[in-house]
């Protein structure tokens, strides 16, 4: 630790000022726009938002998708993370590499693949028709299911990685210790593994939830205007309706969800550290 504060500030300030000017100030002005309508300070834009059944529906759908994707990612994540940590160290590294890799591939490309898979002439429909389950292609795209699958594929790796490192950081031998004391696998999971990996679960969960709720590409491509989420709704409000006030209301709701989840995460993480 160095004592010289002036030196420390000199190193820290350029980045802080840059982020503040380029980023925080414009965002705050944007957000204030939602409370400043026709020259008056008012919350009418917010009451309008919650009074509109379409807006409420989109908000609810966005939350529902986010929660569902996070839950399913957690379940698949645990199963995968258990399988990964049971591998030998070298294949474990390779497997983590495979899980990380998709994160580096353009989300446009990854989402595009689902068009090929779920489209009218896509794999799933071809398979269904070959087996004879259906005579003509069923509509899979532009549905909540399609958006759900796309988001899950996009963000699952984040959950898996968080849980793998949580499992790796679990103290040795606590699982066999619980086993010897008479616990079955379900009891071991809920009484030992879950509490000891809670932090990883919360971190992974936050990344997946925030990612899903604020994603643009997946709902835009796989949901279209049929399955609007807050982000695609915001985009429409700006480009089609040119309604900046409403856009700024949605922006604030998005920021609240994102910040709220992150603060919750920090709370849970520090509660554990104090314990």
């Amino acid at each position: 630790m160095f004592q010289n504060r002036a030196e420390g500030f000199a190193l820290a300030l350029p980045a802080a000022i840059f982020a503040a000017v380029i980023f925080i100030v414009p965002v705050i002005i944007l957000l204030s726009g939602g409370m400043h309508v026709n020259g008056h300070w008012t919350l009418s834009a917010y009451t309008d938002f919650f009074a509109s059944s379409l807006d409420r529906l989109v908000l609810w759908r966005t939350l529902k998708l986010g929660i569902l994707v996070t839950l399913v990612a957690a379940i698949i994540g645990y199963a995968s993370a258990f399988a990964i940590v049971s591998l030998s160290p070298s294949s474990r590294g390779r497997m983590i590499g495979i899980v990380v890799l998709p994160l580096m591939i353009s989300p446009v490309a990854r989402t595009y693949a689902w068009l090929v898979i779920l489209g009218r002439t896509g794999i799933v429909n071809q398979a269904l028709m070959t087996v004879g389950l259906t005579d003509e292609p069923i509509r899979l795209l532009f549905s909540q299911t399609a958006v759900f699958v796309g988001l899950l594929q996009l963000f699952l790796p984040l959950m898996v990685i968080s849980l793998v490192s949580a499992l790796e950081n679990m103290p040795n031998d606590v699982v066999p210790a619980a086993r010897v004391l008479g616990a079955n696998w379900l009891q071991i999971f809920f009484k030992v593994i879950l509490p000891l990996t809670r932090e990883g679960l919360v971190i992974g969960g936050t990344l997946v939830f925030v990612g899903s709720v604020t994603a643009y590409i997946t709902p835009a491509i796989l949901g279209g205007s049929k399955v609007l989420t807050l982000v695609t709704l915001l985009y429409q409000r700006v480009t089609i309706a040119n309604d900046l006030v409403s856009a700024s209301v949605i922006a604030l709701i998005l920021i609240v969800m994102s910040f709220g989840t992150n603060i919750l995460l920090r709370k849970i993480a520090t509660a554990r550290n104090r314990a």
Binding site: L30, G33, V231, I255, S258
Partner: peptide
Amino acid sequence: SPIIVPGIVVGLALLRY
């Protein structure tokens, strides 16, 4: 903070202001 604030909000704010 840029990682926490949704990208679309950042883009819009920069465009407008």
